[in-house]
Protein backbone atom coordinates (compact mmCIF):
# COMPACT_ATOMS: atom_id res chain seq x y z
CA UNK A 1 0.00 0.00 0.00
CA UNK A 2 1.39 3.36 -0.99
CA UNK A 3 0.76 6.70 0.67
CA UNK A 4 -2.30 7.95 -1.18
CA UNK A 5 -2.98 11.32 0.43
CA UNK A 6 -2.49 14.48 -1.62
CA UNK A 7 0.88 15.94 -0.77
CA UNK A 8 1.95 19.56 -1.06
CA UNK A 9 5.63 19.77 -1.86
CA UNK A 10 7.38 23.10 -1.49
CA UNK A 11 9.76 24.41 -4.13
CA UNK A 12 12.40 25.58 -1.68
CA UNK A 13 15.28 23.13 -1.60
CA UNK A 14 18.85 23.35 -0.43
CA UNK A 15 21.38 22.07 -2.93
CA UNK A 16 20.64 19.53 -5.66
CA UNK A 17 16.92 19.03 -6.29
CA UNK A 18 17.53 15.42 -7.28
CA UNK A 19 19.15 14.71 -3.93
CA UNK A 20 17.79 16.84 -1.10
CA UNK A 21 14.22 16.94 0.15
CA UNK A 22 12.15 20.12 -0.03
CA UNK A 23 11.65 22.04 3.22
CA UNK A 24 7.87 21.93 2.87
CA UNK A 25 6.47 18.41 2.52
CA UNK A 26 3.11 18.53 4.21
CA UNK A 27 2.61 14.78 4.51
CA UNK A 28 5.28 15.27 7.21
CA UNK A 29 3.16 17.66 9.23
CA UNK A 30 5.93 19.24 11.27
CA UNK A 31 7.26 20.90 8.10
CA UNK A 32 4.14 23.01 7.66
CA UNK A 33 4.95 25.72 10.21
CA UNK A 34 8.70 25.26 10.23
CA UNK A 35 9.65 25.25 6.54
CA UNK A 36 10.95 28.57 5.21
CA UNK A 37 8.65 29.92 2.49
CA UNK A 38 11.00 32.47 0.99
CA UNK A 39 13.63 31.44 -1.53
CA UNK A 40 17.05 30.59 -0.13
CA UNK A 41 19.61 33.25 -1.04
CA UNK A 42 22.36 31.85 -3.24
CA UNK A 43 25.77 32.88 -1.98
CA UNK A 44 29.29 31.68 -2.81
CA UNK A 45 31.24 29.28 -0.69
CA UNK A 46 33.95 31.24 1.11
CA UNK A 47 36.73 30.35 3.50
CA UNK A 48 34.06 30.34 6.24
CA UNK A 49 32.25 27.36 4.69
CA UNK A 50 35.29 25.58 3.23
CA UNK A 51 36.63 25.27 6.77
CA UNK A 52 34.66 23.66 9.56
CA UNK A 53 34.71 22.03 12.95
CA UNK A 54 35.60 18.48 11.93
CA UNK A 55 35.94 16.16 14.91
CA UNK A 56 35.91 19.02 17.39
CA UNK A 57 34.04 17.07 20.07
CA UNK A 58 35.76 15.40 23.01
CA UNK A 59 37.91 12.32 22.61
CA UNK A 60 36.15 9.36 21.00
CA UNK A 61 36.87 5.96 22.53
CA UNK A 62 36.43 2.52 20.91
CA UNK A 63 33.70 1.74 23.47
CA UNK A 64 31.63 4.58 22.03
CA UNK A 65 31.06 2.51 18.87
CA UNK A 66 29.59 -0.49 20.74
CA UNK A 67 25.98 0.35 21.50
CA UNK A 68 25.31 -3.15 22.83
CA UNK A 69 27.51 -2.44 25.86
CA UNK A 70 28.15 1.30 26.15
CA UNK A 71 25.35 1.84 28.68
CA UNK A 72 28.01 0.90 31.19
CA UNK A 73 25.74 -1.40 33.20
CA UNK A 74 27.82 -4.50 32.55
CA UNK A 75 24.81 -6.00 30.76
CA UNK A 76 24.19 -6.39 27.06
CA UNK A 77 21.37 -4.78 25.08
CA UNK A 78 18.49 -7.02 24.02
CA UNK A 79 17.89 -7.43 20.31
CA UNK A 80 19.27 -8.73 17.05
CA UNK A 81 22.96 -7.86 17.18
CA UNK A 82 24.09 -6.07 14.00
CA UNK A 83 27.28 -4.57 12.61
CA UNK A 84 26.68 -1.37 10.65
CA UNK A 85 29.65 -0.35 8.56
CA UNK A 86 30.52 1.54 5.41
CA UNK A 87 32.67 4.25 3.95
CA UNK A 88 32.33 8.01 3.90
CA UNK A 89 33.26 9.27 0.43
CA UNK A 90 33.45 12.59 -1.34
CA UNK A 91 31.69 13.12 -4.65
CA UNK A 92 34.75 11.88 -6.54
CA UNK A 93 34.63 8.61 -4.64
CA UNK A 94 37.67 9.38 -2.50
CA UNK A 95 37.50 8.25 1.12
CA UNK A 96 36.99 10.96 3.75
CA UNK A 97 38.96 10.18 6.91
CA UNK A 98 38.50 11.64 10.38
CA UNK A 99 34.77 12.33 10.06
CA UNK A 100 32.99 12.38 13.41
CA UNK A 101 29.89 10.21 13.11
CA UNK A 102 27.36 10.44 15.93
CA UNK A 103 24.40 8.04 15.86
CA UNK A 104 21.24 7.57 17.88
CA UNK A 105 18.43 5.06 17.59
CA UNK A 106 15.46 3.38 19.27
CA UNK A 107 15.94 0.07 21.08
CA UNK A 108 14.79 -3.29 19.71
CA UNK A 109 11.24 -2.53 20.86
CA UNK A 110 11.19 0.82 19.07
CA UNK A 111 11.56 2.94 22.21
CA UNK A 112 14.00 5.81 22.73
CA UNK A 113 15.36 6.64 26.15
CA UNK A 114 14.44 10.27 25.40
CA UNK A 115 12.07 11.80 27.97
CA UNK A 116 9.67 12.93 25.26
CA UNK A 117 9.22 9.39 23.93
CA UNK A 118 6.38 8.06 26.07
CA UNK A 119 4.69 5.37 23.98
CA UNK A 120 4.24 2.04 25.82
CA UNK A 121 7.19 0.21 24.28
CA UNK A 122 9.53 -1.26 26.89
CA UNK A 123 12.82 0.41 27.80
CA UNK A 124 15.98 -1.66 27.88
CA UNK A 125 18.15 -0.76 30.90
CA UNK A 126 21.24 -1.93 29.03
CA UNK A 127 20.70 0.24 25.95
CA UNK A 128 21.24 4.00 25.61
CA UNK A 129 20.90 4.06 21.83
CA UNK A 130 23.78 6.50 21.29
CA UNK A 131 27.21 5.98 19.76
CA UNK A 132 30.00 7.70 17.91
CA UNK A 133 33.18 6.99 16.03
CA UNK A 134 35.67 8.53 13.62
CA UNK A 135 36.22 7.32 10.07
CA UNK A 136 39.64 5.77 9.56
CA UNK A 137 42.19 6.54 6.83
CA UNK A 138 40.06 4.61 4.31
CA UNK A 139 36.93 6.52 5.31
CA UNK A 140 35.52 3.44 7.06
CA UNK A 141 33.21 3.61 10.07
CA UNK A 142 31.87 0.66 12.06
CA UNK A 143 29.28 0.31 14.81
CA UNK A 144 28.09 -2.70 16.77
CA UNK A 145 24.49 -2.24 17.84
CA UNK A 146 21.11 -3.94 17.82
CA UNK A 147 18.53 -3.59 15.10
CA UNK A 148 16.14 -0.81 16.12
CA UNK A 149 12.42 -1.49 16.19
CA UNK A 150 9.78 0.53 14.38
CA UNK A 151 7.96 3.08 16.52
CA UNK A 152 4.63 4.87 16.34
CA UNK A 153 4.32 8.61 15.88
CA UNK A 154 1.31 10.85 15.66
CA UNK A 155 1.86 12.31 12.21
CA UNK A 156 -1.22 10.55 10.80
CA UNK A 157 -3.48 7.65 11.86
CA UNK A 158 -1.58 4.42 12.53
CA UNK A 159 1.73 6.08 11.62
CA UNK A 160 4.88 4.01 12.21
CA UNK A 161 8.43 5.06 11.47
CA UNK A 162 10.44 2.37 9.71
CA UNK A 163 13.46 1.04 11.60
CA UNK A 164 16.20 3.62 11.25
CA UNK A 165 19.42 4.90 12.73
CA UNK A 166 20.04 8.65 12.88
CA UNK A 167 23.46 9.74 11.59
CA UNK A 168 25.17 13.08 12.19
CA UNK A 169 28.41 13.71 10.29
CA UNK A 170 30.92 16.44 11.02
CA UNK A 171 33.09 16.16 7.93
CA UNK A 172 35.87 18.20 6.39
CA UNK A 173 34.00 21.51 6.20
CA UNK A 174 30.96 23.48 7.31
CA UNK A 175 29.54 22.95 3.84
CA UNK A 176 29.70 19.14 4.15
CA UNK A 177 27.68 18.99 7.38
CA UNK A 178 25.11 16.21 7.11
CA UNK A 179 22.35 14.88 9.34
CA UNK A 180 20.41 11.98 7.90
CA UNK A 181 18.87 8.58 8.65
CA UNK A 182 19.85 5.07 7.61
CA UNK A 183 17.12 2.56 6.78
CA UNK A 184 17.05 -1.22 6.26
CA UNK A 185 16.41 -2.73 2.82
CA UNK A 186 13.87 -5.33 3.96
CA UNK A 187 11.58 -2.90 5.80
CA UNK A 188 7.90 -3.01 4.71
CA UNK A 189 7.24 0.41 6.28
CA UNK A 190 9.48 2.33 3.88
CA UNK A 191 6.77 3.04 1.25
CA UNK A 192 4.51 4.39 4.00
CA UNK A 193 6.91 6.81 5.65
CA UNK A 194 6.56 10.53 4.77
CA UNK A 195 10.02 11.42 6.04
CA UNK A 196 11.77 8.83 3.86
CA UNK A 197 9.51 9.63 0.92
CA UNK A 198 10.26 13.34 1.16
CA UNK A 199 13.42 12.51 -0.75
CA UNK A 200 12.65 13.52 -4.32
CA UNK A 201 13.69 10.47 -6.36
CA UNK A 202 13.79 6.69 -6.11
CA UNK A 203 17.55 6.92 -6.49
CA UNK A 204 17.89 9.44 -3.66
CA UNK A 205 15.77 7.22 -1.41
CA UNK A 206 17.74 4.10 -2.32
CA UNK A 207 20.92 5.81 -1.20
CA UNK A 208 19.59 6.05 2.37
CA UNK A 209 19.00 2.30 2.56
CA UNK A 210 21.59 -0.09 3.98
CA UNK A 211 22.06 -3.48 2.31
CA UNK A 212 22.46 -6.79 4.07
CA UNK A 213 26.15 -7.72 3.74
CA UNK A 214 26.92 -11.36 4.38
CA UNK A 215 30.66 -10.68 4.20
CA UNK A 216 30.21 -8.33 7.18
CA UNK A 217 28.17 -10.82 9.22
CA UNK A 218 30.20 -12.67 11.83
CA UNK A 219 29.41 -16.32 12.57
CA UNK A 220 27.75 -17.04 15.91
CA UNK A 221 27.75 -13.30 16.56
CA UNK A 222 26.10 -10.61 14.45
CA UNK A 223 24.46 -9.76 11.11
CA UNK A 224 26.17 -7.25 8.83
CA UNK A 225 24.69 -4.20 7.13
CA UNK A 226 26.63 -1.94 4.79
CA UNK A 227 25.86 1.70 4.08
CA UNK A 228 28.16 4.16 2.29
CA UNK A 229 27.69 7.90 2.70
CA UNK A 230 28.66 10.50 0.10
CA UNK A 231 29.29 14.03 1.36
CA UNK A 232 28.17 17.03 -0.64
CA UNK A 233 30.77 19.54 -1.75
CA UNK A 234 34.20 19.17 -3.26
CA UNK A 235 37.35 18.82 -1.22
CA UNK A 236 38.87 22.23 -0.54
CA UNK A 237 42.44 23.21 -1.31
CA UNK A 238 44.51 25.10 1.24
CA UNK A 239 43.99 28.84 1.34
CA UNK A 240 47.32 30.57 1.85
CA UNK A 241 48.52 34.15 1.83
CA UNK A 242 51.34 33.14 -0.49
CA UNK A 243 48.90 32.03 -3.19
CA UNK A 244 47.37 35.47 -3.37
CA UNK A 245 49.30 36.65 -6.40
CA UNK A 246 47.43 38.89 -8.77
CA UNK A 247 46.44 37.18 -12.01
Amino acid sequence: MEVTMAITIGDIVRGDRAVFPPYLYDAYRSTIRRAPRRPLIEVPLTLSELTGPGPAISAVTPEDADLTRNAGTGGEAIGQRIIVTGRVLDQHGAPVPNVLIEIWQANAAGRYIHKRDQWPGPLDPNFLGIGRCLTDAQGVYRFLTIRPGAYPWKNHPNAWRPSHIHFSLLGPSWHTRLVTQMYFADDPLLPLDPIFNALPTEDARRRLVASYAHDVSEPEWALGWRWDIVLDGAAATPFEDQQETQP
Binding site: H92, G131, V179, I195
Partner: peptide
Protein backbone atom coordinates in the same frame (compact mmCIF):
# COMPACT_ATOMS: atom_id res chain seq x y z
CA UNK B 1 36.56 10.39 -12.06
CA UNK B 2 32.86 9.74 -11.99
CA UNK B 3 30.89 12.06 -9.79
CA UNK B 4 28.68 10.49 -7.13
CA UNK B 5 25.47 12.03 -5.93
CA UNK B 6 25.59 13.01 -2.28
CA UNK B 7 23.60 11.24 0.39
CA UNK B 8 20.37 13.11 1.03
CA UNK B 9 19.43 14.82 4.25
CA UNK B 10 16.78 13.78 6.77
CA UNK B 11 15.39 15.56 9.79
CA UNK B 12 17.26 15.34 13.08
CA UNK B 13 13.88 14.42 14.62
CA UNK B 14 12.89 15.03 18.24
CA UNK B 15 15.12 12.50 20.01
CA UNK B 16 18.70 13.70 19.36
CA UNK B 17 19.48 15.30 22.73
CA UNK B 18 20.95 12.27 24.49
CA UNK B 19 23.42 11.91 21.64
CA UNK B 20 24.20 15.31 20.13
CA UNK B 21 23.85 17.33 23.33
CA UNK B 22 25.33 14.97 25.89
CA UNK B 23 27.55 16.75 28.34
CA UNK B 24 30.74 16.33 26.32
CA UNK B 25 29.07 17.08 22.97
CA UNK B 26 27.21 20.31 23.65
CA UNK B 27 29.24 23.51 23.26
CA UNK B 28 27.51 26.58 24.63
Amino acid sequence: MTSRLPTGSQTVGPFFHDCLLREDARRN
